[in-house]
Amino acid sequence: MKNWLFAALLLSVATLASAQSARDKEQIMARLNTQVADWNKGNIPAFMKAYWESDSLMFVGKTGITYGYKATYQGYLKRYPDLAAMGKLKFTYLNFSFPGPGVAFVVGKFHLTRPKKGDLEGHYTLLWKKIKGKWLIVCDHTSG
């Protein structure tokens, strides 16, 4: 009887964890899809809503590491001053995992279609953290 009860308890916990991960993945994917839509409208302020508004936010790009939300936001505005520079964004998701409670890791590829400036593409890794019930990017490493 004890073995049956223990097995049922383990199955319940595993099912709950799986359901939680599925919901969390859906929430993160929705945020990423919203980011693409915001980018394609030329709306960098809305695009930035997926990022942690903190001095501890980290963005790693080809010029090095940028710390802080404000500096990351300013970097986007500088690199993408208009719709021609921004182009049309497409994300391809390559790997999605939950390495620990309240933490997600997404690896993907981005492609910017920019007829006037030339296309740009590369890969990204995003570390997400659930903060006050909301999934936010706490570290973004983008190549390209």
Rank of each mutant, 00 (worst) to 15 (best):
P45R: 02
V103W: 03
K49Y: 00
H111D: 05
I137R: 08
H111I: 04
G133K: 11
A50R: 06
E53S: 12
Y80E: 02
A46L: 05
I28N: 06
Q35F: 05
T125F: 04
M86R: 10
A85Y: 05
M29S: 11
G133D: 13
Q27N: 15
L120Q: 13
G118I: 08
K49A: 06
K129P: 01
V60W: 03
I65W: 01
K109G: 01
F47Y: 15
L112Y: 07
K129M: 13
W39S: 04
F47E: 07
K41D: 10
L89T: 01
Q27C: 08
F98G: 04
D82W: 01
G122M: 03
V36N: 02
P45N: 06
I65C: 05
D119Q: 06
A71L: 12
H141E: 12
R114T: 01
K117Q: 13
D140L: 08
N95M: 07
V36I: 14
K129I: 00
G102Y: 08
T125Q: 13
T72V: 07
L136V: 13
G118E: 09
K88E: 08
T92N: 10
P81K: 06
I137F: 07
F59A: 13
T92C: 00
P115I: 03
K116M: 10
F96P: 00
W52R: 10
D38T: 05
S56R: 14
Y51G: 08
E26T: 15
N33R: 13
K109Y: 07
Y73F: 15
V107M: 10
S56A: 15
L94W: 00
P101N: 14
R79K: 08
Y76K: 03
G68I: 12
E121Q: 14
G64L: 11
K70Y: 06
A37W: 02
Y67C: 09
T113D: 11
E26A: 15
F105I: 01
G68Y: 09
G75L: 04
M29A: 10
P99S: 06
F98V: 05
D82I: 06
Y69W: 14
Q35S: 12
N95W: 04
G118V: 07
W52Q: 13
K134M: 12
F105M: 14
Y124N: 09
L77S: 03
Y51L: 09
T72W: 02
K41P: 01
A37V: 07
V107G: 02
K90V: 06
F110T: 03
A71R: 14
H111A: 13
G68R: 08
